[in-house]
Nucleic acid binder design. Structure first.
Lengths: 136, 136
DNA sequence: TACTATCCTAGTAGTCCGATAGGATAACAG
DNA sequence: CTGTTATCCTATCGGACTACTAGGATAGTA
């Protein structure tokens, strides 16, 4: 299941990608347009900022803006920041690998082999989709 | 994240697929071989039985066995029974569709379009993989 | 009758999600 | 310098869900 955090994050990012970049948009504005709780959205945009996706400006006329060109932001990046690992099981995760304590041998593990296929396919989609694609 | 329920379920099913089918295997046996808690495994196998994947036999020499030929059990079936919807968002689910309350138009929703792609790719993997493939 | 193994309902500790509260900080307008 | 605006930051919290566990009922075997 996709968390609402990620869902809202993607919506906010595509909203920003549709605007003229570098011009700050306030949380309140995005919140109204996308039907997202102000406070919740606030925390989401903050983590996106901390992870180098967004810039911000305080005070009147302030808000958040995209730092990079939308076509240079693949969904792999966004997903990893907001949702965490893309793989369904830690033992097939590229960025968050962790061995299963119950499984003696990964090569013969049915779950392992199946989930590698799922991961590869999902990764392909996220890699080939950028914010620019989504904001069309 | 894949739940342990699903993970253990798949492991147990592939274990059974490797045996001569129709010969019952006890929970205890599978539990030992796959390092799964007996009681937890019990509930998993029970739901697989209730959903027509497994048959069972009580008493001495009893246990669980596959009802169908492993090559006739696609992972879509197993995943839907144990994990639920394959889609990451209800609004792109084929079997459990549900409209988002925050989203006015699915066709222009970035999340919707992205997740349809993910769903299609994941579905393809699960459709083309059977228990027979996993037990090789 | 004793034993074995599945069947079934309930409960529970722990974790995570979605959201909220409330104030601190910084930028700008006058 | 002062008020206003808007981001920054930490802490909390109910509810749902996950991964088990308990304990007995039922049914088949010896």
């Amino acid at each position: 299941m996709l968390s609402k955090k990620t869902k809202y994050g993607i919506k906010a990012l595509t909203y920003l990608a549709r605007q003229d970049s570098r011009i700050p948009v306030s949380i309140a504005t995005i919140s109204k347009s996308e039907n997202i709780s102000v406070k919740f959205l606030e925390s989401i945009l903050l983590t996106l900022k901390r992870n180098g996706i967004l810039g911000s400006k305080k005070g009147l006329g302030g808000g958040y803006y995209l730092i990079k060109n939308p076509k240079d932001v693949p969904m792999t990046t966004v997903m990893r920041i907001l949702e965490g690992p893309i793989a369904m099981v830690p033992c097939v995760s590229l960025n968050y690998y962790e061995k299963c304590d119950d499984c003696p041998d990964e090569d013969t593990c049915a779950v392992h082999r199946l989930m590698i296929q799922v991961r590869d396919n999902t990764l392909e989609v996220f890699r080939n989709t950028t914010l620019a694609d989504l904001s069309k």
